[in-house]
């Protein structure tokens, strides 16, 4: 079974194959983004975007993401602070 994106992102910190898989998964998005650009520049920009994507994958802090209960607390906290402002 294919790994989930989450698993791949965790692995990608020290596994270039995982990076490649994520890159492949987002390839259509890159192609779509290129439609905004001039035809002559596309190949260059495609390369730049891939580089950018790799740096994002490497930089992204997977562990800092909220778990369910953390998310729950945060939402409630946000609501309360919103009430106070109101």
């Amino acid at each position: 079974m294919a790994k989930t994106l989450y698993q791949l992102a965790i692995d990608s910190k020290n596994d270039t194959e995982a990076v490649e898989k994520i890159l492949k998964a987002f390839k259509p998005k890159i192609k779509k983004s290129l439609q905004q650009t001039k035809f002559q520049n596309r190949v260059d920009i495609e390369q730049e975007l891939e580089l950018k994507l790799i740096s994002i994958i490497k930089m992204y802090e997977v562990d800092e993401l909220d778990g369910f209960w953390r998310f729950y607390e945060r939402q409630n906290h946000y609501k309360e602070s919103y009430k106070v402002v109101k």
Binding site: F26, K29, I30, S33, L34, Q36, T37, K38, N41, D44, I45, E48, L49, K52, L53, I56, Y60
Partner: peptide, 15 residues
């Protein structure tokens, strides 16, 4: 979401 918007705007900016 993060990657999508980054790619989108980065492509435009590079162009």
């Amino acid at each position: 979401a993060y990657i999508s918007s980054t790619l989108y705007f980065h492509a435009i900016n590079l162009d």
